[in-house]
Nucleic acid binder design. Structure first.
Length: 126
RNA sequence: ACUACAAGCCAGGCUAUCGACUCGGCUAUUUUAGUUGGGUAGGAAAGUCCGGACAACACAGAGCAAUGCACCGGUGAAGAGCCGGCUGACUGGUAACAGUCAAGAGACAGUGCCACAGAAAAUAACUAUCCCGGUGCAAAUCGGGACAAAGGUGAAAACGUAGGGUAAGAGCCUACGGCUUUUGGUGGUAACACUAAUUGCGGGUAAACCUUGCAUGUUGAAAUGCCACAUAUAGUACCGUUUUGAGGACUGCUCGUCCAAGGUACAGGGUAGGCAGAUUGAUCCCGGUGGGUAACUGCCGGGACAGAUAAAUGAUAGCCCAAGACAGAAUCCGGCUUACCGGCUUGUAGUUUUU
RNA sequence: GGCCUCGUAGUACAAUGGAUAGUAUAAGAGUUUCCGAAGCUCCAGAUACAGGUUCGAUUCCUGUCGAGGCUA
């Protein structure tokens, strides 16, 4: 039995260079609280990162809270996208930025993450 | 028992499911994967306001400048911290005394400023007063002299009171008192206090410039060392190369000393991966026992202490107490300041009840 | 992580330590006009907060809070 809902080091976007590349010439779209950057990578596999602006959330506690909620929502719903990528043997780099100014509830984070991931899988297929 | 103040400690807990980082064991293996056990935010982690540790560079200095500090003693690695004392101001009190606060050296080195009001804000002038002389019956006025007491405005006004003195006055003189300079004595480690003689008595402001004394080498873990990978010893402009010195270090400036053959600017190219630094140290807590008024500290025994690197320490659900505040490590410590729902302990003061 | 600068009416800016804190514009009222705009007259409005120095702080000093910038 292989674990499904993991988020280890291999699945996070850790290279500073890769992140700069992603912001420089990656594609992007917006779903209300999120701005999503994505870019096809050389290696197969799905890598994810999350960020919050310190202008919208001045306290570090709030920024941590939002990032943790986003990671959790992603961890529980990424499976479909991951399977898709495995079938087509491509890699994808992902970065989510939270652009809202209020502290969100977990339900909103969860629903919007589902929407965003669905849109991603659609655009990958094309 | 309640209320107020001060000091110290704690900073929700448990269960289930799914995760993250890290350390140790085991299995496969030697990049890694799986499994099992342990650990995983703070009292302020914050502000970056002080002080250090540590690291790199420098150590050839002199002068100037800059910045900071400023009663005394102690504490400590150190400090603009803390503790104790002295002095001053304010508050309470009849007083003894108690409490709070103090950037608490110098305004007899010099310069500046002191609105409005007031004669005048520091030179002593002006008005007024008094004396002598001229004119005049007088009032008054003119000239010469005396003196700095009177002028009631202001936040601030030329030691205070009484007497003498004088033409009128004045520390001009005397007595008492206040402050001050210098010297001595006593007590105290010292600041200082008391006391004797002596010198004088024209304001405030140094968180105005400043003077005096003391201190400060510069830069901060994105420091620094090592390994790996990659490229362009190419181009343009200016300056310079052994007697002539571009530039650099001490160094913020000047002098001086030393190094010196490449340096600066523009445009462009490459890399930005890993390991160390890095988490156990002037550490914190508990118990016992000494020293000290206290801050603090000696000895003995026991226990505790995250380490990430795009950055972990979490999410969901339920239950309990009764509703969880402020808030998230980024090299590490000691302090200060600020934010904060509550709970516990100790001490002091007050009120009420019982014995 | 380290360092620096600045907070004044709604807005943009002034003010040597001296008291009615000024100017422009916006807002409000009036006047003008058939109605409006422009013009004219009037009016209300602020020193980020808390302490200290000073006779007296927008100004000087200290501490908070906020905003902006530099450094890789």
């Amino acid at each position: 039995m292989v674990k499904q809902f993991t988020l280890g080091k291999q699945e996070r976007l850790k290279s500073r260079k890769a992140i700069e590349q992603l912001f420089k010439d990656g594609q992007r779209f917006t779903i209300t609280p999120y701005r999503v950057f994505y870019r096809k990578a050389g290696k197969p596999g799905l890598q994810f990162g999350a960020g919050v602006s310190s202008k919208n959330f001045k306290k570090a506690v709030d920024r941590n809270r939002v990032k943790r909620l986003m990671r959790e929502a992603y961890r529980l719903q990424k499976n479909n996208l991951q399977k898709h990528l495995k079938d087509s043997n491509t890699g994808l780099n992902l970065f989510f930025i939270y652009t809202g100014k209020e502290l969100p509830s977990y339900d909103i984070i969860y629903e919007k993450m589902a929407l965003a991931l669905q849109k991603l899988t659609d655009s990958i297929e094309q």
